[in-house]
């Protein structure tokens, strides 16, 4: 459209040339709707697939439900009051965000060094190792999680191995425990952290590390004072992605945590499909979304304010 605009003004300029008292060139007329028109298909998709279901979920969460009468089309906030009053829901939400926080921490602890080491590797190995790291993303979440379940079951490889080595007497419980869910989720989500840190490492000038070395800094000091501060934005944006995905993860907690260890996503699922209390399930979903958005936007603000000076 800018092309069209410039051609317009050229035409005007040549037309105005012969006259000696040429009026000041008029700004070419712009049709103000073009940007909206161009983004219309995307906006339509967004509205139909995301906004409408979201609004409908929200409206559903305001309905009431009785065991005999089913869903009643009334508008009230009783579901929200129920959840806020009930300590069972507190526990589930607390667990969800505790798991998400620990997974985020573990992903940062493993993912950031992993990305750094990967970048340091030489050509053929780097590609291979990157593939291995990103591997979990290429495998279906269900088969990957089932693999974990097999590995971690009381007769699974890990427990059998540890017992054979005499390190433990009875099998460690991984299935239906938070530990199991955290390990599996970390495995699934660490690639996002690696990719995010990788992107910020890409912007790192290797000569900057050399400069620090030449000024007398040892390798550890270079790491702490020069490399780490520069990849913190990558770690933080990776953390936001991992946190959001961990807090709303369904398949992994469903298979490893089962019905015994519920998180917000599996709780909503159960309300929808087992209890058939759709309004309550919708309320859980809406609360999960709100909590997620609040936490992520809050963190993002913090990061932006902290690093505005350095990276713009």
């Amino acid at each position: 459209m800018s092309m069209a605009a410039s051609t317009d003004s050229q035409v005007q300029a040549t037309a105005a040339n012969p006259s000696t008292h040429a009026p000041p060139p008029r700004r070419p007329r712009r049709w103000p709707w073009t940007p909206y028109l161009l983004s219309a298909p995307g906006l339509a998709l967004f509205a139909v697939l995301l906004l409408v279901p979201l609004v409908m979920t929200f409206l559903l969460s305001l309905n009431s439900f009785s065991f005999y009468g089913g869903i009643e089309n009334v508008w009230q906030i009783g579901n929200y009051a129920d959840i806020i009053a009930d300590s069972y829901f507190h526990e589930v939400f607390l667990r969800t965000f505790r798991i998400a926080a620990v997974v985020t921490l573990l992903c940062a602890l493993f993912g950031a060094p992993e990305a750094y080491i990967l970048r340091r590797m030489k050509s053929p190995w780097r590609g291979l190792c990157l593939l291995i790291v990103l591997g979990p993303l290429l495998i279906s979440v269900v088969s990957r999680t089932l693999g974990w379940a097999l590995l971690f079951g009381s007769t699974g490889l890990v427990n059998q191995g540890l017992m054979a080595m005499g390190l433990i007497a009875t099998p460690i419980e991984f299935m239906y425990t938070e530990t199991g869910v955290i390990i599996a989720l970390t495995h699934v989500l660490v690639p996002f952290m690696v990719l995010s840190v990788w992107a910020s490492l890409q912007r790192l000038d290797p000569q900057v590390e050399n400069a620090a070395l030449s000024l007398g800094a040892g390798p550890l000091t270079v790491m702490r004072r020069v490399v780490l501060p520069q990849i913190v934005p990558g770690i933080l944006s990776g953390s936001i992605i991992v946190f959001a995905l961990a807090a709303s993860a369904f398949a992994t907690p469903a298979i490893i945590g089962g019905r015994r260890l519920k998180v917000a996503a599996t709780l909503a699922y159960d309300e929808f499909l087992n209890t058939l209390n759709w309004p309550l399930g919708a309320t859980v979903a809406v609360l999960l979304l709100i909590a997620n958005v609040v936490i992520i936007v809050g963190c993002n603000r913090l990061v932006e304010r902290r690093y505005k000076q350095v990276f713009e």
Binding site: Q207, N210, A211, A212, V226, Q230, V310
Partner: peptide, 13 residues
């Protein structure tokens, strides 16, 4: 050694 790099290599942070 003291080194001035062709690309400056300043610490951006």
């Amino acid at each position: 050694l003291g080194i001035v790099f062709q690309s400056y290599a300043l610490f951006p942070h």
